[in-house]
Design a protein around this nucleic acid. Structure first.
Lengths: 146, 146
DNA sequence: TATTGTTATACTCTATAACTATA
DNA sequence: TATAGTTATAGAGTATAACAATA
């Protein structure tokens, strides 16, 4: 239907992440664990929408660069819990702070009423988009079953 | 600064593109040629923000699946012009029509004044974002030169 | 000397399939 | 039998470096 909206990072920002060993996909893992707490790899696979095999590689990378650790699951000896290291926590706190600052800068110069209306409009459009995608997938599902 | 906003395509839509041999990156090439006319690979590399080497592979794929052709450049025997085939034209016209339809569906149910304010807010935010990125890159450039 | 596009090579992100250890 | 994670393999997208043909 559409072109991919590739990426919100500037080249400089990508280079900066690379320099620290933090690729976009690994950053996404870190982000999830930071905001939702330690998770098993199977849970991360579902949350990221990727295969469990893929999570293995991503967590390997995060361990090698010291951003995360694998810890034994307390009740299930098959599973591991992906946990942030001090370095990983620090990186995610910095990223959170940048997001907050960016949000403020983006609406600088708009009056409160306009910010409010814009957000309301955006929520409406996102709601419609979600609905349209759900309808599309239901249709595709029904056709697949026929 | 942020997580990549990976992708606007649903899984179904990606599968549909794959089925026809149209991957996201190849679609982006097609899209550019459709909207801006035949281009050399060097020009496409700049427009896409990728390396010339990468464009070689993408155009190879588009030729193999019959969406585009390489044609000799009229004034420069080193260069080729990437041109859409009839199949490529058709695919891009269909995509354009879907975009137009989607745009209408997204604002369905909003009154005209709200659509207008939302768009104005979005333009403001995009302008600020562009400005902030430019400032960031100018700073990074200045530091790199020091 | 600079530019266009290619061959050679490598890394990230993704997938499926087969396997091991555990539940 | 089902689940968690791994090894094996493959394909798309990206990069740099070296090279040929042409400007």
């Amino acid at each position: 239907m559409l072109l991919a909206l590739s990426n919100v990072l500037t080249d400089d920002q990508e280079r900066e992440l690379d320099r620290r060993g933090l690729t976009p996909a690994r950053t996404h893992v870190l982000w999830l664990v930071f905001h939702e707490g330690p998770r098993t790899q199977a849970e991360l696979a579902v949350a990221l929408g990727v295969s469990p095999r893929n999570v293995t590689t991503l967590v390997d990378g995060l361990e090698a660069t010291g951003f995360a650790r694998r810890e034994p699951h307390p009740h299930d000896r098959r599973a591991v819990l992906v946990t942030l290291s001090a370095r990983g926590e620090e990186a995610m706190r910095a990223m959170d702070a940048e997001h907050t600052e960016l949000g403020g800068q983006l609406v600088a110069g708009m009056d409160d009423a306009d910010v409010e209306t814009t957000l309301r409009g955006l929520r409406h459009v996102l709601g419609r988009l979600t609905q349209l995608i759900a309808e599309h997938e239901a249709r595709a599902d029904a056709e697949g079953r026929t």
